[in-house]
Amino acid sequence: MAARERRPNPRVGPGRTVRSEPPVDPALYRQVVGRFATGVAVVTTVAGGADHAMTVNAFTSVSLDPLLVLFCVEKIARFHEFVLDSGLWAVSVLTEEMRDASNWFATRGRLLDGQLDDWPHTRGPVTGAPVFTAAVAALECRTHAVHDGGDHSIVVGEVLDLDIPDPQGKPLIFYDGTYRSLA
């Protein structure tokens, strides 16, 4: 934490409700949480006989016993319905060279037909979901739980299979609103 002096907040403590007065500025919120460096991944699923994909940076490990991970998906995104209906999905952690893929799968309203054509991928052996062959890591999952997260759903998945498609790849990093690379 910064070295500035903080006085105790009389609103915080046992039996007291924490309120933000004045309300937190959403633009400042985005700036502050954007200072947390994250990896970039694409989550994929197969629903209705078609492939579906979405870029995420809200992805993390949750538990070792059982093996659980989570990602967050905006409730108004088309992908939300597809991944919840399917219940099976894959995560491909992107390499530095996959910025275009990250941007493409983050584009709202893009055509769904043939959306994976420009990125080499295979079918996950357990879920059948697309897995990028140039990913630094890949996981196949079954939905374990879905939690409300405001305007997003928090999708927790049981890990069914793991792979390291490109062991020499360097991960794509997102920090302060832009892509970065490891030094």
Rank of each mutant, 00 (worst) to 15 (best):
A2E: 13
A2Y: 00
A2V: 04
A3L: 11
R4H: 15
R4E: 12
R6V: 10
R6A: 11
R7E: 15
P10E: 03
G13F: 09
P14V: 04
R16L: 14
V18Y: 14
R19T: 14
S20K: 02
V24N: 06
P26H: 13
A27C: 01
L28V: 13
Q31F: 08
V33P: 03
G34F: 07
V40P: 00
V42S: 00
V42M: 00
V43N: 04
V43A: 08
V46L: 09
G49Q: 05
A50T: 13
A50R: 15
D51R: 11
M54K: 04
N57Y: 04
N57S: 11
T60W: 08
V62C: 08
V62Y: 06
S63Q: 13
P66L: 05
L68T: 10
V69E: 02
C72V: 06
E74T: 07
E74C: 04
K75Q: 15
F79G: 04
H80I: 12
F82I: 00
L84F: 10
L84Q: 10
D85P: 06
G87M: 01
L88G: 01
V91W: 00
V91N: 02
L94Q: 02
T95Q: 03
D100G: 14
D100L: 07
A101V: 11
F105A: 09
F105D: 05
T107G: 04
T107P: 01
R108C: 05
R108D: 06
G109L: 10
G109K: 09
D113M: 01
G114V: 08
Q115N: 12
Q115Y: 01
D117F: 05
P120E: 08
P120R: 11
T122Y: 15
V126Y: 12
G128H: 10
P130E: 05
V131G: 00
A135G: 03
V136Q: 00
A137M: 09
R142D: 00
H144M: 02
H144L: 08
A145D: 13
H147D: 08
G150P: 10
H152T: 14
E158W: 02
V159S: 05
V159G: 00
L160V: 03
D161F: 04
L162W: 14
I164L: 06
D166A: 11
G169S: 04
G169K: 10
G169R: 01
P171N: 11
F174C: 04
D176W: 03
G177A: 03
Y179C: 12
R180D: 05
S181M: 12
